[in-house]
Structure formats: structure tokens, C-alpha cells
Design a protein around this nucleic acid. Structure first.
Length: 274
DNA sequence: ACAATTACCTGTATGC
DNA sequence: TGCATACAGGTAATTG
């Protein structure tokens, strides 16, 4: 579901709505509207406005409304769709926008109600404290090698946990942290500052390709993620270790092990990942 | 500043 | 079938 590739896949689909004028808006469920944004305020901001562009910062989806940004943090079970008929039960809809001359509407939903909708007027998003202190996005030019290397210093926690820290790199969650450690041949439990310079380079070089490929395939549908078109992603078929406990390692055939790191399921090959 | 833990919610899968 | 339990992709707040 919603790590960087999933949100990027949604963003690409939503570009179909760029330039369209919003007509009717329905905002429901107070709880997901964060800060001083209320359902009523969201409706008045959006109604009659034009969706300039759809962007992404890490795992956050950002809708450009000209005078500000409507930000959606999907968290665990958020879904975003731009479709004619939304397959998600109406009970879970949080925000629905209809557009002039378009058959599709935009649906933001959240089963577990952990998702959050924000409104920000800042021009720069994610580099400041408007949505969160976000590290560089691996699909952007900001993701340079030196900055990446520097983040390992003075940190002793498990490498996988740090990879999931949004202030370090924006967009990596549990699935892709597991996959990245496997592809780089690094034990996810290794203390961060003991990861060698050569290994840091490997992580840095592999990450953008991993995320790009997953986004191109519509992301990973683990339990119930669907993309902006309502269809499941396909990248889960290519998972090497994630959710594959006891399956043979795709590289050496040893059974994949599962351990818990900072309360998250962690999968790795004890042979290939040193 | 960092690390570890907890809370937030609801649905689904599993085992008894 | 009913019930208890564990677990799920994320983030923010709290404590040490």
C-alpha cells in the first residue's frame, strides 16, 4: 500500500484530472481533517477551484489548488481513486470531488481512519515543518550520495529502521526497506554506523531503481491496496523477501527468516545478507 | 539528537 | 459459529 511507489503510481493516474475545475465537493468525517482544516473549510476551499497539478513528497500526495496545497497522508489504509464508480464502500469516503465535464470523480478514503488531510499555503513542501521534516526524495535530484552517507553517522539503530525514518529518506516504508536490504546484501539488523561506505553506496544506488520499478508496476498490493484507477498493483509478485517467511531465498535457496525490529515484521536471507 | 515504546483505528486471518 | 488473539503498509507523541 502506500509507500512511495504506491503514492507515485496514484499521482501518475491523477494527472488526468490536472487543469479540471472542481464543481461539487463532499467532505465527511471530522477526524481525518487535521490542523485547522475542517470538512466545511475543505469544501469551501475546493468548490469552484481548479486542480492545478498533482504532486508527491515522499509518501504524501499534494494537490495544488493555486493558493495552497491539499495534502493527503494515506498512512495505513488510505486510498485515492479517480474513477467513475468508486469500489470502496461509501462508509469509508472522506473527501469526494466532482469535476466539470469529467465522468470520473476523485475519492479519498480510509478504512482505519488513520489517514490525515492537511491544508498548507507554503510554496515549499516537505523540506520544512509544514507536513513533516522530510529527507530527500529518492526520485528527486536532492537524493545525492554525500547527504545520504552523512545520515549514517552517529546512529546506532538497525539500518532498516533508519531507512524507514522519513527525516532521513522520504518514502521508504516496511516493504521497500526489507527489499532494499536484501538487494544490497545487508542484514537489516546491522547498526547503522557500522554499514560500510561501499555498502552505503550500494543502498544509495539501488533505492531509486527499486522504487521506480515498483511504481511502474502499480506498486505492491499486500492485502488490499489499489491504485488510482482502482486496480491492484503488481509489484508484490516481485518481492524477494517481504512476506515470504520460510520461502526459499531467490538467490541461494535458504529459507527466508522473519524477525521483529521496532515492532515491524522484518524478512531477510541469513545467507545472503551479512 | 537519538532510540525505543506506545497510541491511534478497524478489518482480516488464525486458532481454539 | 463464537470468541480471543495477533497482525497489518504509517506517523506522532512520549519517555529515557
Amino acid at each position: 500500500m502506500p509507500e512511495l511507489p504506491e503514492v507515485e503510481s496514484i499521482r501518475r493516474h491523477l494527472t488526468e484530472a490536472e487543469g479540471a475545475q472542481i464543481t461539487d465537493v463532499e467532505a465527511c468525517d471530522d477526524e481525518v481533517f487535521a490542523g485547522d482544516l475542517s470538512p466545511d473549510r475543505a469544501e469551501s476551499i475546493l468548490s469552484g477551484n481548479k486542480l492545478r497539478s498533482v504532486e508527491r513528497r515522499g509518501k504524501y500526495l499534494a494537490l495544488n489548488l493555486g493558493e495552497g496545497w491539499l495534502i493527503y497522508s494515506l498512512r495505513m489504509t488510505g486510498k485515492v481513486m479517480f474513477v467513475e464508480d468508486c469500489p470502496v464502500d461509501e462508509t469509508y469516503w472522506k473527501l469526494v470531488c466532482h469535476f466539470r465535464d469529467l465522468d470520473q470523480s476523485l475519492y479519498l478514503s480510509s478504512v482505519r481512519r488513520l489517514s490525515r488531510i492537511y491544508w498548507h499555503e507554503d510554496r515549499e513542501l516537505g523540506t520544512q515543518e509544514n507536513i513533516a521534516r522530510l529527507g530527500p526524495d529518492p526520485l528527486s535530484d536532492d537524493f545525492d550520495r554525500d547527504t545520504f552517507h552523512a545520515c549514517f553517522e552517529g546512529r546506532t539503530g538497525p539500518i532498516k529502521t533508519i531507512l524507514m525514518d522519513q527525516g532521513f529518506v522520504a518514502g521508504v516504508g516496511n516493504i521497500y526497506a526489507n527489499e532494499l536490504c536484501f538487494l544490497a546484501g545487508i542484514d537489516p539488523r546491522r547498526p547503522c554506523d557500522e554499514v560500510t561506505s561501499e555498502e552505503r553506496d550500494r543502498l544509495h544506488d539501488i533505492l531509486p531503481d527499486l522504487l521506480k520499478r515498483a511504481a511502474d508496476m502499480g506498486g505492491s498490493s499486500f492485502t488490499n491496496f489499489v491504485g488510482g484507477d482502482g486496480e491492484a498493483g503488481r509489484y508484490q509478485r516481485e518481492h524477494r523477501v517481504y512476506d515470504r517467511e520460510d520461502d526459499p531465498c531467490p538467490s541461494c535457496g535458504e529459507p527466508i527468516q522473519r524477525v521483529t525490529l521496532s515492532n515491524r515484521s522484518t524478512y531477510f536471507c541469513p545467507e545472503c545478507q551479512a
